[in-house]
Design a protein around this nucleic acid. Structure first.
Lengths: 200, 200
DNA sequence: GATTGATCGTGACGATGTCAAGATATGCGC
DNA sequence: GCGCATATCTTGACATCGTCACGATCAATC
């Protein structure tokens, strides 16, 4: 399949070494075949991104299944997010790269929204049981941003550890640290009542 | 200057439409001149990234200056981060793209570490005054990841608001929401004493 | 005044994305 | 079986790109 070949190329050549002709070569077809099916480099990469969001959505659902406590579930979903990122690095290298994929693709928007919905529902459950004043949208987006930022900066963190001659911390270590801090934040959020913060 | 022309091209053509020849065209030099000075596409983009980290470091320092309360200072630094990202989008499009820049560049590592140091110092100040048990490294990296994730996902959040027919929330809105939640988490972090979390 | 080094232009090569045109196969109505 | 439309893929071409080798220009230095 061309999509699989594309993932293969991203994996071994990186996203900037990516080329339709190399995909064609690995798939054993002519140099223009990928162009015919996906129209465009952008088209093929968009297809890969959609595939990524689908597995992300599925994996987030699967991560939370059977866990009753909302906080435990949210934490498990956080781990699931990073797990998807580490197990499907090629897909994740593309999923949020709006300069490379077709942002206006409808199916892409649908699946992305579905994946986000899983996360938001988990946050809503936390709010319902533990902190009704929590602003769910802010909280859910913070969770997503933190995990996405972690995925993106993970390599830099490792370099940082190296510069300080510390044992390099793994992605999993960071996930645990982050979720602890975030959960504490969610539990104690009382922004409407003015914790040590200002206006708005 | 070639670097300015490069930023110009990234801004108008995006990172994948970027080409040395277009940079040369806008700078009014021959098509191979950029290659001579920077050796490579990677070399030129790395120079842009270094420039970006320098202004990031300076801007973070400037954002925190004259603010006594550590929490206020950390919040201001968070805003500064996002401000740099919005005011220098071309630089930020490159700074964390390890597939496009020379990750082993020494000057790049230095400036990046310096910028991170500003953030970490701010977090350390919060810990010292408000919560001595706070794990500074986790906290600082969470702050960075959240802001970086926000910068990357900001566009997607706007699309999300659109799909729900809500008023699109700005980056600044998210910064305020995020910092509130994170600060709450930092203040109440007691992971060593087993808040509602598990082992490790 | 000759030389050296930095800076830049010119020309070439292979590789790439994309398009047009042709080839092949598959299914369908008759 | 036959004609035909459609899908799938190949082939060939073109402009563009990154990169390299080579030459030109010019300032500084000995």
């Amino acid at each position: 399949m061309l999509r699989a070949a594309a993932v293969d190329v991203i994996l071994s050549e990186g996203l900037n070494g990516f080329s339709l002709r190399e995909v064609a070569r690995r798939a054993g077809v002519s140099h223009a075949a990928p162009g015919y099916h996906f129209g465009d480099v952008r088209g093929l990469l968009t297809a890969v991104a959609i595939e990524g969001f689908e597995t992300l959505r599925d994996e987030l659902v699967r991560s939370g299944e059977g866990i009753d406590d909302p906080i435990e579930r949210l934490t498990a979903i956080g781990r699931g997010y990073v797990r998807v990122a580490t197990e499907h690095p090629a897909h994740c290298e593309v999923m949020f790269r709006e300069d490379v994929i077709a942002v206006d693709d409808q199916r892409l928007a649908e699946v992305g929204l579905a994946a986000y919905g899983v996360l938001e529902a988990a946050v809503a459950a936390v709010a319902e049981r533990y902190n009704p004043t929590l602003r769910i949208q802010d909280a859910a987006r913070l969770c997503w941003s933190a995990m996405q930022g972690l995925v993106e900066l993970g390599a830099k963190f490792a370099v940082l550890d190296g510069l300080r001659a510390e044992a390099p911390s793994t992605l999993d270590d960071h996930v645990e640290g982050f979720t602890t801090l975030i959960v504490n934040g969610l539990l104690h959020d009382a922004s409407t009542a003015g914790s040590p913060r200002r206006k708005r």
